[in-house]
Design a protein around this nucleic acid. Sequence first.
DNA 1: CCGTGCGGTTAACGGCCGTTTACGTGCACT
DNA 2: AGTGCACGTAAACGGCCGTTAACCGCACGG
Lengths: 194, 194
Amino acid sequence: MDRVPDEPAKQTRRDQILAAAAELFARHGFHGVGIDDIGAAVGISGPALYRHFRSKDAMLGEMLTSISERLLEGGQSRVAASNDPEHALRELIRWHVDFALDDPALITVQIRNLANLTDPDRRRVRALQRRYVEVWVETIRKTSPEVEEPTARAAAHAVFGLINSTPHSAHLDRDQMATLLSQMALASLAGALP
Amino acid sequence: MDRVPDEPAKQTRRDQILAAAAELFARHGFHGVGIDDIGAAVGISGPALYRHFRSKDAMLGEMLTSISERLLEGGQSRVAASNDPEHALRELIRWHVDFALDDPALITVQIRNLANLTDPDRRRVRALQRRYVEVWVETIRKTSPEVEEPTARAAAHAVFGLINSTPHSAHLDRDQMATLLSQMALASLAGALP
DNA sequence: CCGTGCGGTTAACGGCCGTTTACGTGCACT
DNA sequence: AGTGCACGTAAACGGCCGTTAACCGCACGG
């Protein structure tokens, strides 16, 4: 069978494990999932995971830092590609909505399992999250310059909460959900900030 | 010292334990808190808790059912006391905002630790939550009758997410936060639903 | 006084679960 | 062909932690 040489199967196994673990962590919580459960989810069993990860904590750490990095980088690039702040804000909203709808498990894990991280991992993740929030805060303040920074920050967190609610509902199909959440997010900012 | 006879100290101990446990569960997660930690938080140590609760699971169960009951009952009574749907919706928002601001730990625990409940407890809590959501859905659909029920339900979940974001920010003082969240919640509904 | 029971203590048990160890197997590369 | 590494397995270890046991003091109604 034809193989693509520049995309080794090596990466695939790690990612497969991370994806399965994310799903399980989201559903049962970090401590509610055993190493054997994760192994079983990818067809290998138990301690075989230690060929790919140093520890269970390392799996969570890698998972959360990669989410945070993807969120931050995506947000930054959308803002950079926009001319006016209003457009940038719409793009940020769309970006976050798409992310939450496409990877609900990752969103859930990131929200619920920060406390289970190792101290250095938690510091790293929090730093990335802070920078992501700052991207939002700056954009919000450019669209409404008279709003104070703490208010903008609180508003940003509120919008995150709104968009991240997606894993708990999911009654609509993807596109309807995307436009609903985007509209609500935009309206909550436009309607509540002076 | 003068004691009030109709408010026995007996209830106080249980409630004191539940409050301390809620704080700890919110910060470290259910499994991240030991029975000894909870005891230490109220000045007694370890297994003494079993004089007041059947098990650690029972503590979480009682905590979550009582939150859900309070939320539901408060929501129902606000709606019942309102004449027009617009007023009812504003009251619902205010009620939920006040609850989230006054008991951030309880909100956090309810969101994060549903998975740690015993099966019968989880059924009970979910049933209460469903009824609470229905109160919101009905009110939303009375204010905008042309919106479909699944859309209203998704919008309600989104607003919960928005308001429940409070424990993660808290940069503003209570009153500013309350008006900000209320305005954002109202705007997200008014601005996004036809 | 005196038992009774409530609320507390410390010590021990027992299971779950992350991690380590020792061991196999097959593909890749001289 | 043979060497070695990548990847798996099964079994044993070890600690943490919820729960139980055994024991104790003190308030309080007869």
